[in-house]
């Protein structure tokens, strides 16, 4: 299997990591990602209204994106919140966080919509659940495309 060249390097590496594994080990890797999803900063946990729910997920997932000025120009910061009882959802949010956080809007918008399918998890987690995962990427891209709230 080959990875689409359009993926940003960090995300491409994650996709490769998944593809190199047997199917059942991919689930274990997703579980590891679910554990490493960073908690929201306090300024956001105290203001749930700043987050948006991704209703396509079976378990509640909330997210927001912010733009941040850095020496390298303007980049996008991603923030996710999902309960520990939803490790699949958390795991996928964590993949997107590690793969996309800190990239430019153009880089994020260029991620192919079928990127979740490239993880090779569809059979292991079922197509229905995969749709929820794809919806998270879709929402991130939509948020980025529709203009960004400046960092507080």
């Amino acid at each position: 299997m080959t990875t689409s060249p359009a993926l940003p390097p960090a995300l491409a590496e994650i996709v490769n990591d998944f593809q190199e594994l047997e199917e059942r080990d991919r689930l274990t890797l997703l579980l590891e990602f679910s554990r490493s999803l960073p908690a929201l900063p306090e300024r956001l946990t105290n203001h749930p209204e700043l987050l948006e729910q991704v209703v396509e997920c079976q378990s509640p997932l909330f997210l927001t994106v912010e733009s941040e000025k850095t020496d390298d120009g303007e980049v996008i910061r991603l923030f996710f919140q999902a309960p520990p009882e939803a490790p699949t959802t958390r795991g996928f949010a964590s993949v997107l966080f590690e793969g996309l956080d800190g990239l430019t809007a153009e880089q994020i918008l260029a991620v192919p919509d079928d990127m979740p399918d490239q993880l090779g998890l569809t059979r292991a987690i079922s197509p229905l659940r995969m749709r929820g995962m794809s919806a998270i990427l879709g929402r991130v891209k939509r948020k980025v495309a529709s203009g960004l709230r400046p960092a507080a």
Binding site: Q58, P87, A124, I125, R129
Partner: peptide, 21 residues
């Protein structure tokens, strides 16, 4: 419901049966 919840912690000695897969 969540396919990974069992792996995140389960009753000792239990096995998983997933409704989808």
């Amino acid at each position: 419901e969540d396919v990974l919840l069992y792996e995140s912690g389960h009753i000792p000695g239990s096995v998983k049966v997933d409704w989808h897969t």
